[in-house]
Design a protein around this nucleic acid. Structure first.
Lengths: 148, 148
DNA sequence: GACAGTGGTTTCATTATGAAACCATTTGAG
DNA sequence: CTCAAATGGTTTCATAATGAAACCACTGTC
């Protein structure tokens, strides 16, 4: 069930991330979960996935500790899939993908959703990367070093 | 050749991003390209992908405008795959994935690479999301609004 | 001119994905 | 309480993607 052997013991953090969530549906499920969905049928309706696929993905995400199963909050006998902290912390990944898409994958008038600051209602700024001392860093200002 | 029909006309920016780069190899190729690799054989050696898969992926990435083919910079008759601005701007996505992995997918002493500020050599800070007025925003401080 | 390296393509086997049917349990309506 | 519908899946089967290996044309190297 989703067994990407070549990534599994990869040293690269990006490869590891992709092993956990790099399958095309996972991030959409997590997006929905961050939007408040929690029930199997909610995900299924929202995503339009085949039920077997969704079941397999949710099982894998639970196994990875990104979701956990909990008794339904409305008191019913069913269960809910809720994001763990690990899952919630994928938020920046989703924001990065969203901002990139906004920049390059949408036509000018085509905007569809907007991520806003709840307080002001205004659009958020671009994700920023800073140095320890606070300087704003561009890609070229950074470097990847190996620590053995 | 990689035809994720259910994402193609998706309105959601995240779904669109995943349609372009959400296949598991693409981001690793782009990671390598940001690290300076440009030739087919460099990618192939580094990633260990089957050549047919790599060829298909590179073709798709070129078609998406993430890479472009250019005559080799060393004057040989071969060509190089170089990132366009669109491709380079996936940097924040990679940083987000890396930071998440560092937090959750590595054991304490297991660190492997570190993204540093070139000037100081010190590790970069976490990606930050700010409001227009500069306030640092957490996930809960944001909201997704539909713009029709 | 021989030989290795580059950048692929082709073929075939394996694996993942997806659609549809099915099913046990739960819930809601009457 | 009863029955129908909804929930949360699993199973089966077809199709599509991936991967390994062999092959091949062209390039650079000696």
């Amino acid at each position: 069930m989703v067994k990407r052997t070549c990534f599994e013991d990869a040293q690269c953090p990006i490869a590891r991330s992709l092993d956990a969530i790099g399958d095309g549906w996972s991030l959409l499920i997590i997006r929905d979960a961050l939007g408040g969905r929690r029930r199997f049928s909610e995900f299924q309706k929202s995503l339009g996935t085949a039920k077997n696929i969704l079941a397999a993905r949710l099982r894998a995400l639970v196994a990875h500790g990104i979701f956990e199963l909990r008794p339904a909050s409305d008191g019913s006998a069913y269960q809910e899939y809720v994001l763990t902290d690990k899952g919630k912390d994928l938020f920046p990944v989703l924001v990065a993908l969203r901002q990139w898409a906004d920049d390059y994958l949408f036509e000018p008038g085509e905007e569809y959703t907007r991520l806003v600051d709840r307080k002001s209602g205004k659009r958020v700024r671009r994700l920023e990367l800073h140095a320890q001392d606070g300087r704003l860093l561009r890609r070229q200002d950074t470097e990847l070093v190996r620590v053995p």
